[in-house]
């Protein structure tokens, strides 16, 4: 948090010295993006808060925590492959899930499949590249996302 404040402050000062008009334009663009995404983020916070109240943390940790093993990995990969969530919402959500006991490798699989595998958008992909390529790319991405998660599990406790 402090680091973010320092980085933002430094960038802002540098940008302001460099070009005032560009800085103003950048701030305006940032503010617009922020306002556009705010209602969605608020909704996600509300829904997640209520869900986490209804589902006890031990259960979530059991499903997706350190001890969840392969089932947790697979579940995260499937959810990530099917979901259509933008990064601006996925990362805050993932942050909340980590606080509720979900392990980092599981989050890595969720994020990786979310970014790389798109089952819902496969028809769109197929129209550009054909079904064969869409199927191969998505399957490869799914498998490699699991591999990334497994390596993450090995490496996480080493550093």
């Amino acid at each position: 948090m402090k680091l973010l404040l320092i980085i933002t402050g430094a960038c802002l000062i540098l940008s302001f010295i460099g070009d005032r008009r560009k800085t103003a334009l950048g701030l305006k663009k940032g503010a617009m993006m922020f306002l556009k995404i705010l209602p969605t983020i608020l909704t996600v916070i509300i829904v997640v808060s209520i869900l986490l109240y209804l589902v006890p943390e031990q259960k979530i940790a059991g499903w997706f925590g350190e001890e969840s093993g392969f089932d947790g990995y697979m579940a995260a990969a499937l959810v990530g492959s099917i979901s259509l969530i933008q990064g601006f919402i996925a990362f805050p959500m993932a942050g909340v899930l980590v606080q509720s006991g979900v392990s980092y490798p599981v989050i890595a699989i969720f994020i990786t499949t979310l970014l790389m595998v798109g089952i819902m958008t496969m028809p769109v992909e197929a129209r550009y590249f054909g079904w064969r390529m869409a199927l191969i790319r998505n399957s490869l991405a799914f498998v490699f996302a699991l591999v990334v998660g497994v390596f993450m599990g090995f490496l996480w406790n080493l550093f």
Partner: peptide, 21 residues
Amino acid sequence: FITELISMLPLMFILIGLFDV
């Protein structure tokens, strides 16, 4: 969640906006 988001999001979007220009 809300305190975390409200304190962090504006800073992030300032950076994103600056990056964009």
